[in-house]
Design a protein around this nucleic acid. Structure first.
Length: 759
DNA sequence: ATGGACAATGTTTTT
DNA sequence: CATTGTCCAT
């Protein structure tokens, strides 16, 4: 029996509940929720807007709402759509829902906007101008395509910077503007418009979509094809959206279409945490929501469960300076807590030293575990100094950032091979690998190849496959003998990989490609760097292993859609280094925000744009509100841009913080160098931050460490300390221990007479 | 076609 | 300064 989602009244909720016996009833879905949260979870059908301050339990509300719909209202999971912005957020929600409902939740559509759109587009490709095995182009590919488009139109890529043109195209897509609709006011607009048109043609010729296309095409499909729209609109009785303030117009429109039949849209967001305007997100969607859906029920969540009052007061002092916002009064029952600290360092290395010192001493005093810390910064470039400091101190850390892995040359190469096999029309990938490793195929050959393929109306990859099949006859005049042989050999390789791809797993295909191209000898030149490169390829191989029972397409898709945040693995007990953007949605007991200098935070590029400045402020606010127990801010007297250190002013945001909310500290030179000296003599390069994306189940060190990170140990000579890191290497457990008296030591567990201390 | 040397150029944030 | 692109010699 199924309860039709109609009028939701409490009394009915229980009677029509087909799972009551197993689930224990309504109360379970409301247990541990405050009255506002309960109101949100139990709100009736129709549009619902939940304005959720930081740490107010919005994920909780979302997951409980879904559980409530399924468990108490009898809505079938297949009729619920829930969208998030990161895979991590989606997985977390899935985990929580499953723990509440178990199998009863299966069939739910839950995923990121992008992944959900990909699924729809593949399914509906018959209505669209591309095939269902399309590939997803990342930013590098996009840039390459813009360059190609500029070249095709005979434009100078010096005069029209590809990145600038791409940004304009991306904005247009986010606004759902087709090339023909691109607004032209200047000559440059005219150029962009033409490039945009050509760029779209090229994408289709490559059977590829870029990130923006995923939303763009789905939204257009729904607006222009009533049959398809109806299908999804009828199916999804309930639609729930996380981080609604980050939606752009394409996403807003998309949602509007999907809920056009049932109108049950439940969105959660916070305008104060809108930090993606530069990517097209428009927090005014939150305000527009109430206009578009006048019967919206609004629920305000103000109670914070994360931070101490000091931290909240500081956060409010910062954000209250932004105009045009409804002030929220964040409050907590956690008590005052400790005052946030502001540290003034000599330069960025001084900041890093302060971070390391503070972390080490809090760990040594047993007040915190390594995993309790996060260090946040405005720009990725700032991580370098911090990483160096962590390595030097021999402290393991984890770094958030997909770029770190998927942006690597060797990884891009291997993925390009896979993409080419999957989709021979992908000319960008072809261009990347056709001469990697070198096969004597250069620019001139490529030009001939392109014109030849164009003449026969094919993509270069398809042309090559044809060459592999029919042999080189007839092309002797076009290419020299050498080159023709080289091309044929390469073409036969692709053809044979394609045959493998049809039957074999992504893993064995990858192995075959690596073997056939002798890729290892190409990148692993015996240097340390070469070895690291090969290790990275092996890491990718490990990832491919998880796709034994799925296809190459799934593998490529997942690889294309990972976000930085997704690379954050849980359960590693080490401090986290991440940008303020990547920090959204996360929380840590101890938070450092470094680089509070004018020009860095707020970033200099925002100075002359009031909207951008407000966003910088929100970014700072997001960082502050990640902290649970302690917050440490720091700025440097000198900051180096392009090598030269120059005096830098403290962030103007600091001036908005009342003195009584901040404890101030200045650089202390003595104590730092004393500790630093002791560490340097023990210095050994740690391997932290190397392993990207996922846990590595097949890693050679599977044995459980006897002294796991976080454990307290006693050494007969060095006294008491805390384990910071432990790994098994050559059947030997290597343990990094921070001793209260000595600082960091690295020992072999079998040699040092360590004693585990409980508690 | 390839690889080396030099020059220019630029750093926000990312699904 | 550190990466990326361009020019030139092999």
């Amino acid at each position: 029996m199924q309860c039709v989602a109609g009028v939701f009244r409490r009394g009915e909720a229980l009677t029509c509940h087909w799972l009551t016996g197993r689930m224990g009833g309504l109360m379970d879905f409301l247990k541990g929720l405050n009255p506002q949260q309960q109101q949100a979870v139990m709100s009736s059908t129709g549009p619902v807007l939940v304005l959720a301050g930081p740490g107010s339990g919005k994920t909780r509300v979302l997951t409980h709402r879904i559980a409530y719909l399924i468990g108490a209202m009898g809505v079938r999971p297949a009729h619920i759509l829930a969208v998030t912005f990161t895979n991590k957020a989606a997985r977390e929600m899935e985990r929580r829902i499953t723990s509440m409902l178990g199998e009863a939740a299966s069939g739910l559509t839950l995923g990121t906007f992008h992944a959900t759109c990909v699924r729809i587009l593949r399914r509906e490709s018959e209505h669209l101008p591309f095939q269902s095995n399309f590939v997803i182009f990342d930013e590098d590919d996009q840039l390459g395509l813009v360059k190609r488009a500029l070249a095709d139109l005979g434009m100078d890529d010096k005069r029209y910077r590809p990145s600038g043109v791409l940004a304009a195209i991306s904005n247009a897509k986010n606004e759902l503007l087709l090339p023909d609709e691109f607004p032209v006011q200047t000559y440059r607009d005219e150029v962009v418009k033409r490039v945009y048109r050509r760029y779209q043609e090229l994408l289709l010729a490559n059977n590829a979509l870029d990130f923006d296309d995923l939303l763009f095409w789905t939204a257009n499909l729904f607006t222009q094809n009533p049959v398809v729209r109806e299908k999804y609109a009828r199916r999804y009785e309930h639609v729930l959206v996380d981080e609604f303030q980050d939606t752009n117009l394409a996403q807003y429109e998309l949602l509007k279409q999907v809920v056009s039949f049932h109108r049950n849209i439940f969105v959660v967001g916070d305008t104060d945490q809108s930090i993606y305007a530069w990517r097209g997100a428009d927090y005014r969607n939150l305000l527009r929501f109430e206009e578009d859906y006048p019967d919206t029920q609004v629920v305000l969540l103000e109670q914070n469960y994360r931070s101490t009052q000091y931290i909240l007061d500081l956060a409010m002092a910062v954000i209250d300076r932004n105009p045009y916002r409804k002030p929220k009064r964040l409050f907590t029952e956690r008590g005052q807590g400790k005052k946030p600290l502001l540290y003034e360092a000599y330069d960025d290395r001084g900041e890093a030293a302060f971070v390391i010192d503070t972390i080490a001493s809090l760990i040594a005093n047993n007040q915190a575990q390594p995993g309790d810390f996060a260090v946040m910064y405005r720009t990725n470039a700032q991580s370098r100094v911090l990483e160096e400091a962590f390595l030097k101190a021999n402290l393991p850390y984890r770094l958030v950032g997909a770029q770190r892995f998927y942006g690597r040359r060797e990884i891009k190469d291997v993925i390009a091979y896979l993409r080419l096999v999957h989709n021979p029309s992908d000319e960008l990938s072809l261009g990347r690998v056709i001469n990697t490793p070198p096969r004597g195929i250069g620019d001139k050959t490529m030009i001939t190849l392109r014109t030849l393929a164009q003449r026969e109306g094919q993509a270069m990859g398809e042309w090559l496959l044809k060459l592999a099949e029919h042999g080189p006859e007839g092309y002797q005049e076009m290419f020299s003998h050498r080159i023709l042989t080289s091309l044929s050999n390469f073409a036969r390789l692709i053809a044979s990989w394609q045959r493998s791809a049809a039957t074999a797993s992504p893993l064995s295909l990858l192995d075959q490609i690596l073997a056939d191209t002798e890729y290892r000898s190409y990148i692993d030149d015996g240097t340390e760097e070469g070895n690291d490169r090969w290790e990275n390829v092996m890491e990718l191989r490990r990832l491919a292993m998880e796709y034994q029972d799925r296809g190459l397409g799934d593998f490529l898709q997942d690889v294309a859609l990972v976000s930085d945040q997704d690379t954050l693995q849980n359960g590693v007990n080490a401090p986290t280094l991440l940008t303020l953007h990547a920090a959204k949605g996360l929380e840590f007991p101890y938070v450092f925000i470094v680089g509070l200098n004018d020009g860095t935070l707020p970033h200099a590029r925002s100075f002359d744009d009031p909207d951008a400045m407000q966003e910088e402020r929100r970014l700072f606010y997001v960082g502050i509100t990640r902290a649970g127990d302690r917050l440490f801010l720091s700025f440097a007297q000198n900051r180096s841009l392009y090598g030269y250190a120059e005096p830098a002013a403290p962030s103007r945001f600091l001036q908005d913080i009342p003195a009584e909310l901040l404890e101030q500290a200045r650089l202390r030179s003595g104590s730092l160098s004393a500790n630093a000296g002791r560490r340097t003599e023990l210095w050994q390069p740690a391997r932290a931050g190397q392993s990207p994306a996922k846990e590595t189940p097949s890693a050679p060190h599977q044995a459980a460490p006897r002294y796991p990170a976080g454990a307290r140990v006693v050494h007969p000579v060095w006294g008491e300390g805390m384990v910071l890191n432990s790994r098994i290497q050559d059947d030997e457990e290597i343990v990094d221990i921070f001793f209260e008296k000595l600082g960091m030591k690295r020992v072999a567990a079998s040699l040092a007479k360590l004693e585990l201390k409980r508690g």
